[in-house]
Computed example of a mutant assay.
Amino acid sequence: MPLPPDERLEDAARRYGSMRSFAAEYLRERIISGVLLPGESLQIDEIAQRLKVSATPVREALQSLRVEGFVDGVRGQGFRVHPITAADIEDVFLVHANVAGELAARAARSISDEQLRVLEALHYELLAAAVRGDVEALEARNNEFHHLLNHIVDAPRLRWLVALFSKYVPRNFYAQIEGWPEATRADHTQIIDAIKARDAEAARHAASEHIIHSGELLAAHFRSATAAASVSDASGSAASAQARTDA
Rank of each mutant, 00 (worst) to 15 (best):
T226N: 02
S224Q: 01
E182A: 05
Y124C: 09
R204E: 03
S230D: 14
G39Y: 04
R141L: 12
L3T: 11
S240G: 03
P38V: 02
D199I: 02
H151G: 00
A105R: 01
L9T: 15
A107W: 00
F79T: 06
L119Q: 02
T226L: 00
A140D: 15
H188V: 01
D113L: 14
L138K: 04
A207E: 04
G39T: 00
A241E: 03
E60L: 12
I191K: 07
L62T: 09
D11N: 15
S237I: 07
L218V: 02
E46M: 14
G101Y: 10
H205M: 14
Q242N: 10
Y26R: 08
I177C: 04
L119S: 09
A225H: 07
P2K: 13
A86K: 00
T189S: 13
A130R: 03
G34Y: 00
E178A: 15
A206F: 00
T184F: 13
R132Y: 08
R157N: 06
A130M: 13
I84E: 06
A243Q: 09
V131P: 05
I211S: 11
Q190A: 13
A97P: 00
T184H: 09
I212D: 02
A24P: 10
F165D: 01
V74M: 12
A194D: 07
D233L: 15
L62M: 02
L37P: 15
E7A: 11
G73M: 11
V58C: 08
D246F: 15
I47P: 05
H146D: 13
E90N: 09
G17A: 06
V99Y: 09
S232W: 00
A105P: 02
V53K: 13
F222A: 01
H123S: 04
H146I: 12
L65A: 05
L42T: 02
Q49K: 14
R20C: 09
L127D: 06
A55Q: 13
V153F: 06
A12M: 08
E178H: 13
L218H: 00
D134M: 09
